[in-house]
Amino acid sequence: MSEVLGLWNYWVVIVLMMIGLYIMIARDSLVKKVMGLNIFQVSVIMFYVSMGKVRGGTAPILPEGGAEGVLFSNPLPHVLMLTAIVVGIATTALALALVVRIKEAYGTIEEDEIHALAGGDGMDGRSAVQGEAE
C-alpha cells in the first residue's frame, strides 16, 4: 500500500508517456506523431521534476533574510529539464519543418499514403537520388 502512495505519480507519468509513444507509432498523420512526441517528452520532464520534489520543501530560491532551516526541493532536476524543454521545442520545430516539406512533395501528411506514393519501402529500380548532379 505504501508503494501505491509513494509511487503513484510516477505511474501516471508512465501512462502519459505510453500515450505519447502510442500516438507516435500507431498514428499515420505526421503532425499527430509530432504531438505524440511532445507528450512523450513532457512526461519524461515530469518524471524528473517528480524526482526533485522533497516533501515539505519549497522552490529552490533563497528567501530574503537567509536560508537557515529552509528545506528546498532539489534544483538539479529543474536545471536538467530546462535543457530538455529546449531540446523538445527544437525537435518540434524541425519535425514540423520536415512535415511541411513532405506535404509539398507528396500532397499528403498521412504516412500510409506517402508510402503508397513512394512505392513502398523498396526502390522499384528507381534511384534514390535521381538528378542529384550539381
Binding site: S29, V31, V34, M35, N38, V42, I45, V49, S50, G52, K53, V54, G57, T58, A59, P60, I61, F72, S73, P77, H78, M81, L82, I85, V86, G88, I89, T92, A93, L96, V99, V100, K103, T108, I109, E110
Partner: peptide, 30 residues
Amino acid sequence: MDAVDVAFTEAAVGAGVSTVLFLSTLALTA
C-alpha cells in the same frame, strides 16, 4: 512540485511557441 523555472518555461514554450508552430504547420498541410 516546486519547479517554478521549469513551469515558467513549459508554459511559454509548450502553450505558446509550439502551439503557434503547430497551427502554422496545419495551415500549410491538413
